[in-house]
Design a protein around this nucleic acid. Sequence first.
DNA 1: ACACGATAGACAACCTGGTTAACTATTTAG
DNA 2: CTAAATAGTTAACCAGGTTGTCTATCGTGT
Lengths: 156, 156
Amino acid sequence: MSSHTPGFELPLRLLLAFRTLIEELHAELARQGHPDLRPMHGFVMQAIGPGGTTAVELGRTLGVSKQAAGKTIDTLERVGYVERTTDPRDSRRKIVRLTPYGLDALDRSARIFDALRARWAADLGEDRLQALESDLRRMTPGSLWRLDTPGWFGNL
Amino acid sequence: MSSHTPGFELPLRLLLAFRTLIEELHAELARQGHPDLRPMHGFVMQAIGPGGTTAVELGRTLGVSKQAAGKTIDTLERVGYVERTTDPRDSRRKIVRLTPYGLDALDRSARIFDALRARWAADLGEDRLQALESDLRRMTPGSLWRLDTPGWFGNL
DNA sequence: ACACGATAGACAACCTGGTTAACTATTTAG
DNA sequence: CTAAATAGTTAACCAGGTTGTCTATCGTGT
């Protein structure tokens, strides 16, 4: 009966696996000229996308307050990954766009993530990895970006 | 060739899956009389264990500074999950022990995690879930508790 | 026996990434 | 043309981390 894995291992392994991937990503990004990029910056830039966005919108897609989104944009702007321009058609809005440097980071991230996935595929077998991904997809909500996370996992 | 899942989905799904489980756990814990328990409290209590520990030791097993461990213990103490008693054999040390309330929370957490795992098993099939667990085990470091995490995922 | 180094804990100052609340400036709707 | 809604900023706060410093106690070597 209780030859089963204890239930608490699953979430821990999921978190550990996540952290491991992220650490590897950022180690590699640092090597490739992006030493100041933090994990959350990557996520936020993904969420901004090549099309640009605004603070309110970003907050909504990320599931945090507009103020939090604003602060994050501030720091991204300070490090040179995004820039703000005011919308000509609505002078309340400020459009946040990735800079070329930001796009470069995003690009490299995508490639590194692919490489990491390839490493998993090599270790586990492509079929097995696909099963894993499909199982996770099945057990998680569809929306990839609303991580909804105070601190990206943080509180609550 | 590139019919593959983009690499960035994997980490996201891992995080999402983790968060989903944790949210379900805490929703259920709240229902069962532990509305103030935060995710990290659960982890820390697991790490403390029934035997008790000290701040320095806890910091080591969690991979954070002793000061951070101390602060966490403070808040756990305030909410009534742990208590500090000074070690009679070494008056520098203060032994942190789970209170009955804390033990109850830990207990319920374990049961809820088992139930959640059972739900996954029902959805995916026990064999498939075991494959998933074993794959994750393979791709992650052995030490479950050293989450090493500023904010449990937070920064860096 | 005792001084000295190592250890446990506490405290302070600071960082990040969240939160609410309050305020300004603009746009849109009635 | 006024009133409500919306975008952004600022401020005060919280949690959980960091480092650095300080005190008290323990253990060891001469």
